[in-house]
Every structure is written in C-alpha cells, then in structure tokens.
Simulated assay, not measured.
Amino acid sequence: MTDPALQSIADRFPRRALALRLLLLGTLVLLLAGLFAPIITLEKLLFVHNTFSLASGLVQLLGEGQVLVFLLVGGFSVLLPLAKLVVLFLFVGRHWADRTRLHRYVGWMHRYGRWSMLDVFVVAVLVATVKLGAVANVQVHYGLYLFAAAVLLTMAATAWVMRLADALEREAGA
C-alpha cells in the first residue's frame, strides 16, 4: 500500500477526483463561453445598439487606449480565473511529500477564494468604463450568467479541493 504521506488526492479519492476534474473542465467551458458570449447590449437614444462580450470589451478598451483598465479587467477576469482552474486541476493529481508546502498552497487557495467574486465586479467596471453618454439602456445577456456560474463553480471546486486536501493530510498524520 502507498504511504499516505505520498498520495495525491487522485490516488486516495479516485472517484471524487474524477468528478472534481469533470467539474473543473465544465467550469472552464462555462468560463470561456462567458468570456466570448454577449454579456450586455447598450442602447443609446434608441438608434445606437452596441452588444459586446467581455472579450470584445477588452479589445475595445485596448483600442481606446485604456491600457490600465484593460490590464485590470484582463488580469482579474481572464488570467486569474484561468490560472486558478489550472492550479486546482494540478492540485488534485499532485503528490504532497512536503506537508509545509501543502499547507502553503491550501492557504493561498483560501486567500484567493475571497477574491473570486472580484471577477463579477470587474465586469461591472467594464460596463462603467464604456463611455455611455447622457441616456443609455443596458440589457444583460446570457454571457454574464455563464461567467457568473463559472465563478461560483470555481469557488465550489476550491472548497471541495480544500476539503479533500484536509482529509488527505489528516490520514497522513494519523
């Protein structure tokens, strides 16, 4: 039998790890769809209709020279969520001989988990940075819901990974 101190989450909990990896894959699909699907339509003066996704909004920000806002939105809404999904996926299969490192990574995931809803806030910032004019009507589309679902599922997956890591550590310590 394998030493519990050297087991990964996938080694110790194979069915849960498979379900978790499928959840992470589904979350990635939702995140990518949420990035490219239309999130809002802006109507100005009943004649101008502008529908955009988060990705097209980022392109528009860059085109308008809003580099700092582009970097903030792109970092918090695209790069960090993608990085978190990759880290969670790798975390499931990783063998943890060094328990100090495991504690550090679990702590990092917990601290970053508090910032997860910042992704949704960033979308609101994106909407605010679009120059609206005096009168505008905003319609929300399914892309925003896909994106929000990906954020929520990422939070759930993080909690699940943390519980499994804690269980793995308790078994190794026993």
Rank of each mutant, 00 (worst) to 15 (best):
T2A: 13
R104K: 12
M155D: 00
G65W: 02
Y105I: 12
L18Y: 00
F76D: 00
L71W: 05
K131E: 13
S116V: 09
L23V: 00
Y112P: 00
A17Q: 05
T51D: 05
D11A: 14
V67R: 02
G93R: 01
R170K: 15
L46D: 13
F13R: 03
V161K: 01
G143L: 12
D98P: 01
F13L: 03
V138M: 14
R163C: 04
G93I: 00
V151W: 02
V127C: 08
S8M: 04
W108D: 01
F121D: 00
L126F: 06
F70N: 01
Y105E: 11
N137H: 11
A17H: 04
V140C: 01
A10T: 01
F52G: 01
L24K: 02
V122A: 15
A5C: 03
V120D: 04
V69Y: 05
L30S: 10
H110R: 15
G173A: 15
H95I: 02
L42K: 13
A124I: 08
D3S: 14
G63D: 09
V59I: 13
E171N: 04
L23G: 07
G107H: 05
A33I: 12
A159D: 00
H95W: 07
V69K: 09
L20H: 04
A33G: 12
V78D: 05
W108E: 02
A17R: 04
A10F: 00
V87T: 10
A83M: 10
V140D: 00
Y105D: 06
R114G: 15
A136P: 00
T2I: 12
V123L: 15
A156T: 09
L153M: 15
G57S: 14
G107V: 05
L31I: 06
Q60A: 14
F147V: 06
G63L: 11
M117A: 08
L61T: 01
Q7N: 03
V106L: 12
Q60M: 12
E171W: 00
S56K: 15
L168T: 02
T158I: 02
G26Q: 07
V122T: 13
F147D: 02
